[in-house]
Amino acid sequence: MSEERSFLTRLGRMDRRFMYVVILIAVSIPLLRPLALPLSVSPETKLFYDYVQSLPSGTAIGLTFDCQPGALPELYPQMLAILQHLKVRQTRIICVAFMAEGAMIAHNALTDVFGASQSHPGYGKTFVNLGFIAGGETGMAAFAKSVKGAAPQDYYGSPTDKMEVLSGVETAKDFALIVEFAYGTPGIPEIMRQMQSPYGVKIAAAATALIATQVMPYLKSGQMVGMLTGLRGAAEYENLIGKPGEAVAGMDAQSVAHVAIILAILVGNIGYYSERRKQK
């Protein structure tokens, strides 16, 4: 009995490197051998999808790439899925970034979805990358007030004043929807203050799971029309548009990792209670 207790007590004091190996194995195995687990669609993802589905072709959609490369494992599949959907809906896609790295990320995403960016025949007509606008929240305010004023040139240095994709788009009010790829600051609270409140434009969030708790109140109050949360949100959206990709492939690994962490928590508690009993 004392040997068993000693083992149980040791369960509560495992070296954290053992945990790291467990997580590494838990994440790797499903990537090598997929489990094809079912995936339900959360209400907020469905709202997002339904809203985009309802948009007529030719409407102007703004995409703000406010993220750094660290968030790409979660946000990049979201970006690709949303861009693919918007491409199918034949909307006008206007990309902008209020974080410096976002401009390059937007270039990569457009290239992956359209096959090319600036050299694509549709560039400037159906989609554009306006590049990085400095200033954070004040940059957002300037963009909302005058799109072409804040971005007189696109990411590649071409003047924007005569671009077909921007015709009729003067202020934030002229967008049918603005999708914010949110990771930090500037992010959702800033876009709410500078675009949604003053101009009444519809906002949707594509956020990392880490900031989902911060973003959820805006969705529940009706200030946002939809939200994608992390890699799971990207996977749900890929299924909805009928193009399962990287995100769906990553769901098995995420499931197994969650189970591994839950088991680790249970094991830790067993060890903790065993130690408490031993002390009593």
Binding site: G135, G136, E137, T138, T185
Partner: peptide, 9 residues
């Protein structure tokens, strides 16, 4: 790790 811009930062 924020600066001096941004309403809540």
């Amino acid at each position: 790790s924020g600066g001096l811009t941004g309403g809540d930062v």
